[in-house]
Write a protein that binds this DNA or RNA. Structure first.
Length: 477
RNA sequence: GGCGGCUUCGCCAAGGGGUAAGGCAACGGCCUGCAAAGCCGUUAUUCUCCGGUUCAAAUCCGGAAGCCGCCUCCA
């Protein structure tokens, strides 16, 4: 059973064979910390977190690196606007990012390097490029990478430099030898943060930090490099140029890119004003619903964020937890010693380019099968059926640790939902219990119109009653 | 203009040479005082369209239409 990964470099799936047996080096482009993170950042982070977990589960020793871009034009702009020091701004958004990712149950990478803490490495890297004739320093202090010095430029994005009429949309800097040459080091303007360098006071361009830091923390050559689809060109193309121009060996073996999150079928964009921040989404839905949503489509496909899709995910999550609760009530206990058919199928799905969408489908199939067995045995399963149900429970719990969802106990999941609903509806649980008692009395006396009246009253507050053999339970919709 | 992707049930969505997963919604049934939950059944002989390859195509190839992304900061 081997892992297959879609590699942007060759445009198809291929078997995953790490450079060093048993070890995986993985670098993922993190955020530029000048503003609050949006749902698209969350997708990328959650997708690669899940990939990280799966690789680890497969037994690889994964060295996972995710950077913070903390020196950048947008940060400087914000600093000038607010009068705050750049580091105050970047620290604020790094904290926010960490808090939100923690909420989404994202594991911390092994290393989280910041550009500003790696300036000497970046300068060294640029110097190596200049020494090899791959970059040049011009009057005024800029250092550019020379596209013409790197024959295979364009191989990741499938672009031919000759076909690309650079400058069609932006003015070309006349100091560049080729319009496509990109900045490695730019001189500081007055009131901008800067570092001393052989080319004067300045700061690094965007692409170079990833080449320098990935080299520093993973070496000349490593296994996986990830990020959003939009980074393929120019960012990742330029990273390849920089790193391979210096070391002359293949930079990255597998390039993995995630698709976008659309909002109501539209791309998030400033002009549409539909940037949806993680904090907004967290205010509306539980982190678990958000994470399940982000994993509900294949990572390379676009995914559409809308109230409807979130409602559906939320119902699905309820269904799964309700099943787990039913298992527990039927005396099924987790016994992690064995794994069943579901885990096997799940492994196949994850090994097929991390197909979490398929994986969720498999869980629902098992929920249906399990519910059927519980129905058939009147919720008192024995012998083989009990064993089968134990395996379902084991497998779902094992999957929970990979997908990062279904990790709560069913009782705390439903309690949390109730607490949230009661706060929202400003209702007290004793009030609800009291009404349920009244209704029980009415039902006993065959006063069904009064019983239904009470039920309707509660339903109006989104509280659904469920009459079972052990009495009446309730939940928020 | 260059490059890449997508089009599968009312909606969302997996599959990507061997005869259509799953979720939501809807309808019928079991259960229930009636409901809810759960289960059973029904809902795509068919995967945008037109050709081709093959014993066999939603899946491969060619063409058409529609939609989308990147090429500018962007996950």
């Amino acid at each position: 059973m081997s892992l297959k990964v879609y590699n942007t470099l060759i445009g198809k799936k291929e078997e995953f064979i790490p450079i060093k047996e048993g070890k995986v080096g993985m670098y993922v482009c993190g955020p530029t910390v000048y503003d609050t993170s949006h749902i698209g950042h969350a997708r990328s982070v959650v997708v690669f977190d899940t990939i990280f977990r799966w690789l680890t589960k497969l037994g690889f020793d994964v060295r996972y690196v995710r950077n913070f871009t903390d020196v950048d034009d947008k940060i400087i702009k914000k600093s000038n606007q607010t009068g705050q020091d750049c580091s105050v701004i970047t620290e604020k958004y790094i904290d926010e990012f960490h808090n939100e990712m923690d909420a989404l149950n994202v594991l911390r990478p092994v290393v989280e390097p910041k550009a500003t803490e790696n300036i000497p490495h970046i300068i060294d890297f640029i110097q190596m490029l200049i020494d090899r004739g791959k970059a040049y320093h011009v009057d005024g202090g800029d250092v550019y990478f020379s596209i013409d010095s790197f024959k295979t430029y364009g191989k990741l994005s499938g672009r031919n430099p000759d076909d690309m009429r650079a400058g069609a949309r932006i003015a070309v800097d006349e100091k560049k030898k080729n319009p496509l040459d990109f900045t490695l080091w730019k001189p500081a303007k007055p009131d901008e943060p800067f570092w001393e360098s052989p080319w004067g006071e300045g700061r690094p361009g965007w692409h170079i930090e990833c080449s320098a830091m990935s080299y520093e923390y993973l070496g000349e050559s490593f296994d996986i490099h990830g990020g959003g689809k939009d980074l393929i060109f120019p960012h990742h193309e330029n990273e390849i140029a920089q790193s391979e121009a210096v070391f002359g060996v293949q930079f990255v073996k597998y390039w993995i890119h995630n698709g976008f999150v659309d909002i109501n079928n539209e791309k998030m964009s400033k002009s549409l004003g539909n940037f949806t921040m993680i904090k907004e989404v967290l205010a509306a839905y539980s982190p678990e619903v958000i994470r399940m949503f982000l994993l509900s489509n294949h990572y390379r496909s676009p995914i559409d964020y809308s109230e409807d899709s979130m409602r559906e995910i939320s119902l699905g999550l309820d269904r799964i937890y309700a099943f787990l609760e039913r298992l527990e009530n039927a005396g099924v206990k987790v016994d992690a010693s064995q794994k069943g058919e579901l885990w096997k199928e799940f492994s196949l799905a994850m090994n097929d380019d991390f197909n979490s969408a398929k994986a969720l489908g498999l869980i629902f199939e098992s929920v249906k099968k399990g519910n059927r067995l519980l129905d058939e045995t009147g919720d008192t399963p024995k012998d083989d059926i009990l064993k089968t149900l134990v395996l379902f429970y084991n497998d779902i719990k094992a999957i929970a640790h990979i997908l990062g969802i279904f990790l709560l106990s069913p009782s705390s999941y439903f309690k949390f939902k109730k607490d949230k609903g009661m706060t929202a509806m400003a209702i007290d649980p004793s009030e609800i219990e009291d009404l349920i008692q009244q209704r029980a009395k009415a039902r006993k006396n065959k006063n069904f119109s009064r019983a239904d009246e009470i039920r309707d009253l509660l339903q109006a507050k989104n509280i659904t009653l469920e009459d079972g053999p052990e009495g009446t339970t309730w939940r928020f919709e």
